[in-house]
Design a protein around this nucleic acid. Structure first.
Lengths: 239, 239
DNA sequence: GCAAAAGTGTTGGAAATACACCCATGT
DNA sequence: ACATGGGTGTATTTCCAACACTTTTGC
């Protein structure tokens, strides 16, 4: 066996060994429309999962960070690059992908469905009602579940939910969004009190139009003011 | 060029391509001793980081899940396999590892330093005070910071802090642990009220010994009771 | 007896909850 | 005129924060 052959054997062995695995990024892209939480899915093009719905994902490039890969996937599909995006966690079951050992890092993204048009609509890219989704390809159902629970928790402690709404929104829309995501009905007056007391909603002076009732005021969320606000460090033990 | 050589070239090309990356798991193992939060580190054996401290990590095997890899690393170093362990998140900066493109998944683990003896103490495995750590190898300082913030938040909403204490502990120890991790001084009476009102601490009937003052009662945390307790779903918007 | 921490209740203020009526608009 | 949701205030309750003295043990 020649030296180069030995060298090559070593490389091939490495490939089978513990050292190398594939890594992908999967994006759970949530939208809010018609008072319901939706998620953007495509039809899987793998034989094993023919007809099943799948998250938007791709293998990560060797020259891009995880965040960059996630933004790239979003941009490819939505054409937008200013979306809210955050890593949730990695999923590493051995047999989660039938073709190879692929570990995936799940990202959660929030998008305003109205402001947005899908760029590539191949593979039947569609919005699906989160509540109505049943079976999915790979372990994507588990990933979706984890991301949905992450979102339910996260909207309570961080103002990311505004990314689901238009820049200018009514308090009703805001409340519907919170109710749809959390699954909890909230008192309208207390909800308003809560948000007004934060001093982060600014009156745009505009009103809803095309509603068959008294139009509500439109507000926008002042994110800069939120950033400058000092966070309280300790919230208190509660479990 | 022979067929095998072509094949090999293709494999080598793949190695350089976007498809394959290395994946590791790094464990941030916290302990609590002498009223201070500590973390378990080893001296890096990489030339680039000679003398710098490093988290406990390893490449993931092709037949093990991420969680299994993390438990394996813990077991190898501590000899224990019933530790609290939870994934925090993945880190994927392109140049975070000087030798290759390695993405790592960070896990946070909590251990009671007393109940435990280090099995392999090579590479100067040692406990370090979290507050006194400065420079570290790779991006491990960032990982540690993220995990520490994760811990500060997590102990408020989940009873994982008990893993840092002996099975039987005094309320003083419990409070010291919370104060050390959060960096916030708490009122002793209110702290007691809080924990007693949960009905999850059980009086063991035993008392501290070898303390130069009135000994305190020892309690243990009833985790089963905690599990059975129904969680309240909605905590309220607060940001 | 002295040092050092254990143990224990009350009170005032803030925040969360529950709740009902009039108003503006489109049809 | 009527149907629909917008907009508003108050009373009650619950939770949190502040605060001081007596008790028990080791030395």
């Amino acid at each position: 066996m020649s030296a180069i052959q030995k060298n090559i054997k070593s490389v091939l062995t490495q490939l089978e060994s513990d050292d190398l695995n594939g890594i992908s990024v999967d994006c759970v892209i949530f939208g809010f429309d018609d008072d319901e939480l939706k998620v953007l899915l495509i039809k899987s093009d793998m034989k094993n999962f023919a007809g099943k719905w799948s998250l938007l994902g791709d293998l990560i490039g060797s020259k891009e960070t995880l965040d960059q890969a996630a933004y790239r996937i979003l941009k490819e599909r939505t054409g937008m690059d200013d979306l809210y995006l955050e890593q949730v966690r990695a999923f590493g079951a051995v047999d989660r992908h039938p073709a190879a050992r692929i570990i995936t890092v799940a990202y959660c993204s929030l998008i305003n469905i109205q402001h947005h048009h899908l760029v590539r609509t191949d593979n039947e890219l569609h919005w699906h009602k989160v509540k109505q989704i049943t079976e999915m390809a790979f372990d994507h159902r588990e990933i979706l579940d984890v991301c949905y629970e992450w979102l339910q928790k996260r909207i309570q402690e961080h103002p990311l939910g505004f990314s689901l709404l238009p820049k200018k929104f009514s308090l009703r829309e805001l409340q519907n969004m919170y109710e749809a995501i959390s699954g909890v009905k909230l008192d309208r007056r207390n909800f308003r009190k809560k948000f007004f007391s934060m001093n982060l909603l600014e009156d745009t002076g505009e009103y809803e139009s095309d509603v068959p009732h008294r139009p509500g005021k439109l507000y926008h969320f002042n994110y800069e003011k939120y950033q400058q606000k000092e966070r309280k460090k300790w919230f208190g033990i509660d479990f």
